[in-house]
Design a protein around this nucleic acid. Structure first.
Lengths: 189, 189
DNA sequence: GTCTATAACACGATAGAC
DNA sequence: GTCTATCGTGTTATAGAC
């Protein structure tokens, strides 16, 4: 772990506030108060409010892209790949719960990087869908609508940022395990 | 269907804009432009921006509460109750996709009604959890962590507002059916 | 019921002292 | 690196003509 610079502190504090109220409702004065300084002083470390959003969202989006690439290129069953996707989400979310809120809810307020973000998200979803389709072809996965399956899994995984902070007793491995069981094996006896 | 009053038109247009950018990022000027009038004219029909949010969120939240009460008081298996919950979400969301976005993402900007909303949400989740726990006791549902099951189902159901508008070809009954299969029966062969 | 004009204030960001 | 002061603009909402 590198030591946290003052800029990193600001970014992390911003992510926390953005999670609570959303990007648009957080003012630079709010952020400054949370940092124990005046709003003008923030600009010695950052260029703009928009840069904060960019720093929060793009780095996480790229983490997902890299993780997905590794999974896609690996040699394992499609069910195992899905379980690896679950673990990917649990790990990234556990490491940056606040940032995940911005990724999910404030991406539309990106300015210069909006298209890039949408491209990454689109590629990610296509890869996710591909794993499911190949799993169905290989008879590892039930003959259901692949898009419904992806929608359901992805909705759950994208909501993890709301849930992980409330369940601190559950460690990442146990949570990924429980989630895989529920998402993949179902709940019906 | 009652004829839509001018006030209803404004509320529905507001819901659409709130879905796109969030409550805080939508200005009364944006709303007025979308309505083809000037911002000042809006105030002949509504009292404040906050009132719009209240009208959108609280009515839907009460629909969920009423629907859940009916399900809880009905005589059927717990698995059937869960399927009815899925249908409840699909129906309400199909009827008011835009409003569901505010319910999910902008509830924290409620002022006077915030506590009331949180109370309704809390009661709803407790009832949901109760169905799952009784289903496990009755051996209808697998011995998994009930909270993980609820979290997973509810995350998916709460995301429906994003998905339903993109899949207009799927009717409500078919969607509820597919979702129940995936959420309750799982995807593993 | 819609308009123009404007009040009263909050916003992001900058200038320049220390 | 933090401060005070402030610019220029955008915000919700109201007043009053038509």
């Amino acid at each position: 772990m590198k030591p946290e610079t003052r800029k990193d502190e600001i970014i992390n504090t911003a992510a926390k506030l953005f999670k609570e109220k959303g990007y648009s409702a957080v003012t630079m004065r709010d952020l400054a108060t949370a940092m124990g300084m005046k709003a003008a002083s923030l600009y010695n470390h950052i260029n703009s409010k928009q840069d904060l959003l960019k720093a929060i969202i793009i780095s996480i989006a790229e983490e997902f892209t890299n993780g997905m690439t590794t999974i896609i290129n690996s040699e394992m069953s499609n069910i195992s790949k899905l379980k690896r996707v679950v673990t990917l989400h649990v790990d990234i979310t556990a490491n940056n719960t606040n940032g995940m809120a911005s990724l999910n809810n404030d991406w539309m307020h990106l300015e210069d990087q909006l298209e890039y973000y949408l491209q990454l998200r689109d590629d990610y979803e296509n890869n996710f869908l591909q794993i499911i389709k190949e799993g169905i072809l290989a008879s590892e996965i039930k003959q259901s609508n692949p898009e419904v399956i992806m929608f359901s899994m992805l909705s759950t995984l994208r909501s993890l940022y709301l849930w992980i902070p409330k369940k601190e007793d559950l460690n990442a491995n146990d949570l990924a395990q429980s989630l895989s069981e529920v998402l993949i094996d179902g709940i019906n006896t």
